[in-house]
Design a binder for these strands. Structure first.
Lengths: 356, 356
DNA sequence: AAAGCTGATGTGAACGCTAACAATTAACGC
DNA sequence: GCGTTAATTGTTAGCGTTCACATCAGCTTT
């Protein structure tokens, strides 16, 4: 009686069919040299005949590599994180890795610790953490890291490899654009101040104003949501000398546009509005939004690139021979920091001030 | 010399420290009964003392369960899929599962096959496939399924468990809303016709019009993007008798609003516009958009619920005793089909027609 | 022609865990 | 008091790979 009819084939089955040992099958599978072509063909035929697929669990047990990368993300319903995640997933899969994801409910130390614990249980080979708050990056750096970690939009000063978009530069681009159009100064609706992205955009904006000798207005702070933008917009609508606003993301910019519209302030005739992110919708706002475009997929790709580098380094330590391990403190190179440049997309929401 | 200083502890280490056998450690870890409380405490102390963590790979090898669920998604940069994914991830993690994700580049049979192959290699215990096109659902149903599968937004007639939002009902809600406001008929900008969601919304819309004896205008077809909505909006702006439009998603609705605005058609005074999805932005469109809200997280949760049920069933087949396995064709229950109800969110983009 | 090498293959152990069974002890009933 | 049973623990054997090493032919080398 063939009672094993439903058991999926293992290496030994393939070996038997091909008339070789299981080890030879393993050699074929792992592209070892020193297998006679004829034997190789026979093994491959047996593999295909049986529909054999290597058991990755058993393999992981002995190689101690799961071929899985963990990704810790936050609020993946937003366009930016979602795009970054997509870029990461794609690059990782192209490199032959599985991607295990954990979305943080909240950007807290506990949630982060839980996420790392979860992925740790799964024995991921490496980790990408989207850490947009300085506190998160710091917390991360203080946790034990049994595997290589790359952060995205994280804090470069925290001692971990980082990939991020040059937020400061984005702020500069926007502010210069508006000043060049003839505006005396530019107001700013920022994201939450503990977010690194918000901070960078503020910096770029402030520096540019200062460099131009323009007055630096008080910063209005939102929380990235359209609603918070709307509230800030209502406050802005009451300002007499307002001619230009830089809003830290497109969603809030939408809220600002709405508030200005309700207050009968015309954009761009009365006030210029510039956003940040270039979400697919922003081209169709009323009016189409001038904004800053970030290549999120590129960020994801770079993050995986860095992680794979770290993984490779882990396996060939490349320690200079004769150097006793753990000996004199070699000057280890600083962790890599990849910066992706954003660019300005000019649309109709920005123009010269009315009474120039 | 302690040469193993960096080797992470295994069960045997814990056993040695606690003065028991490794099997007893295993029993403690798996909450087996019949372990003396005192022994249990000693083991737990040893585990904590050593910082021991069970090796999930070794465990998976023997239990043949990876505790990982695979998710196949498409275009996760969109709000809907991203939210669904989030719901899935959250529910799966709460249930103690890891989540491995694959985003399809394209909605093709080949891409799907590759994704399933990828996840198959990883030996996932179960699969959630977001299959918004009928063709995808069909292709999926024809592929070998070594593990339980649940589809989301898939085709209920294809023989696989499904969780979806009642799109038809959504179309009905919108159309009834507009007719009740006094519109003679309602135009429709649909999604791509091979998408099940697009189809369901069209159906609900058409049925409602027919039931009310209202004329059924030609359907304009978009591709979910704001740009396609804009193009359709331009065409609509030229229609003389237009008073109401149902747009199949909020992004396209934004495009329609933009086109109407450019054509000096006022919303809702001249034309009412209703969307679908209730993305966070839609409340701040000009004007705020009446739309249909779908509980994507609920969809994700339900999908995992179904999958876990299937997984549990797999292990306790619950076959009536005396019934020979593979014997007479028992009338297997139809695959479960969970439907989540959407609801209408009325905002300012819809109102009574001008010349009522 | 003996020794040495190289290429091709096989054998046994190990990875760290759980399942099945065996063994030991304590408790119980008549 | 002794078999019977239940509770607790240990022993052994895998799970399906890869790694380290052994083997064995067929060549070269001197």
């Amino acid at each position: 009686m063939a009672r094993n009819i439903h058991r999926s084939p293992v290496m030994a089955d393939v070996a038997r069919l091909a008339g070789v040992s299981h080890q030879t099958v393993s050699r074929v599978l792992n592209d070892h040299p020193n297998v006679r072509p004829e034997t190789r063909d026979r093994v491959i035929a047996a593999i295909e005949g049986l529909g054999y697929r290597r058991n990755s669990t058993a393999r992981a047990l002995v190689t101690k590599q799961t071929n899985t990368l963990g990704v810790v993300a936050f609020d993946t319903t937003l366009y930016g994180p979602a795009s970054t995640l997509y870029g990461i997933e794609r690059a990782a899969r192209d490199a032959g890795y599985f991607v295990s994801i954990v979305s943080l409910r909240e950007l807290t130390r506990d949630d982060l610790a839980e996420a790392l614990d979860h992925l740790g249980r799964q024995q991921v080979d490496g980790l990408v953490v989207i850490a947009p708050q300085s506190a998160v990056a710091v917390a991360l750096s203080q946790m034990p890291q049994p595997v290589p970690v790359v952060t995205v939009e994280g804090d470069a000063d925290v001692g971990l490899p980082v990939v991020n978009v040059d937020q400061r530069r984005g702020g500069v681009l926007v502010t210069e654009h508006l000043l060049r159009l003839g505006h005396r100064t530019v107001w700013h609706v920022s994201g939450p101040q503990d977010w690194l992205e918000a901070e960078g955009r503020i910096e770029g904006w402030r520096e540019t104003l200062l460099a131009a000798g323009a007055p630096v207005p008080e910063v209005l702070t939102g929380d990235w949501s359209p609603r918070s933008g709307y509230r800030c917009g209502q406050r802005l609508a009451g300002m007499a000398d307002l001619t230009a606003v830089f809003v830290a993301n497109d969603q809030m910019a939408l809220g600002v546009l709405r508030a200005l519209d309700e207050a009968r302030v015309r954009v761009p005739d009365d006030v210029s509005v510039v956003g940040f992110d270039d979400i697919p919708e922003s081209e169709f706002f009323a009016p189409p939004l001038t904004t800053v475009s970030q290549d999120f997929s590129e960020v994801g790709r770079k993050a995986i690139e860095l992680l794979l580098d770290a993984l490779a380094e882990e396996h060939e330590p490349a320690r200079p021979p004769g150097e006793p391990p753990g000996g004199p403190a070699e000057d280890t190179p600083p962790p890599p920091h990849v910066v992706v440049q954003p660019h300005l997309v000019v649309r109709r929401s920005s123009g010269p001030p009315r009474a120039a």
